[in-house]
């Protein structure tokens, strides 16, 4: 038996919106301590990893580990039934064939229920090693979103360069070339801060199209954390207050 109730259902709605363009069918892992999922996109270029702790739920019960195979596209359609102020409850029996999703609005007394059919997914076994990232950049999520969006109109690829003084996003295209450079800024106004933790400088190229997809999660978190290592994929991380973390992994583009 699994049951989890989230008071701020909007968070779950936003999470589904933030991953639905990247992954289609996903195995959701339910454990007594929380909910997690990990899945690659069909081109194997990007990976989504979500971890939600039971502590963030108003009520959480999972007697055993369970795997729920879900079509994210269909889950997104069901989530449209939820009002932004709804509480959301997820329920599944042992050996479940469907996931029951309940939306409740205590103010308006409206309740919506949907039984989403589960599917069997042959998922790849992913193993993400613990990695020490040599550059970690914490940046306002809205600002990072805007930088990626505007640079995409100028080029398909961005080169991210880090060093102890700044992080630089540079593009080169038919229009011309240029860069946005952000220095370390620990100003009192928290939302303006850009925090650089660089032990080794990194220079890598990435497809901006994917960064734009990841940035749909910017409404979940005030800050985006970029974790870089010269020999590793980029990690774009959004902390969800009191609940968990949504991470995206992106393979670099390699010059020949």
């Amino acid at each position: 038996m699994f049951e989890a109730k989230l008071t701020e259902g909007l968070i779950l709605k936003k999470i589904v919106e933030s991953i639905k363009d990247i992954v289609t069918d996903v195995n959701i892992d339910i454990s007594p301590s929380g909910i997690s999922l990990q899945a690659m996109d069909s081109s194997h270029v990007a990976l989504v990893s979500l971890n939600l702790s039971m502590d963030g739920f108003e009520h959480y019960r999972a007697d055993t580990n369970m795997v729920l195979g879900v079509s994210i596209a269909n889950l997104a359609k069901v989530m449209k039934l939820a009002d932004n102020n709804d509480q959301i409850t997820l329920q599944a029996d042992q050996e479940a064939t469907h996931l029951k999703i309940i939306f409740e609005n205590p103010k308006t007394e409206r309740t919506t229920e949907f039984n989403l059919n589960l599917i069997t997914i042959d998922s790849e076994h992913l193993a993400i090693p613990e990695t020490e990232y040599s550059s970690v950049v914490t940046i306002n999520s809205g600002e990072f979103s805007k930088i990626c969006k505007e640079l995409f109109s100028l080029s398909e690829t961005v080169q991210i360069t880090t060093n102890t003084d700044y992080v630089q996003f540079s593009v080169e295209g038919e229009v011309g070339s240029g860069q946005v450079r952000l220095g370390h800024n620990d100003s009192e106004k928290k939302e303006d801060q850009t925090i650089l933790e660089v032990s080794e400088s990194v220079q890598q190229q990435f497809a901006i199209r994917y960064l734009n997809m990841f940035n749909k999660a910017s409404t979940l978190s005030s800050f985006t954390r970029l974790c870089l290592h010269q020999e590793q994929p980029l990690v774009v991380e959004f902390k969800i207050d009191n609940l968990g973390v949504l991470k995206y992994f992106l393979a670099p583009k390699i010059s020949d």
């Binding site: 194997h44 076994h125 992913l126 193993a127 190229q205 670099p252 583009k253």
Partner: peptide
């Protein structure tokens, strides 16, 4: 422009 790499060599368990 660089060539797009895949995540498989990094993360796919064999």
């Amino acid at each position: 422009l660089g060539k797009q790499h895949s995540l498989c060599p990094y993360y796919l368990a064999r």
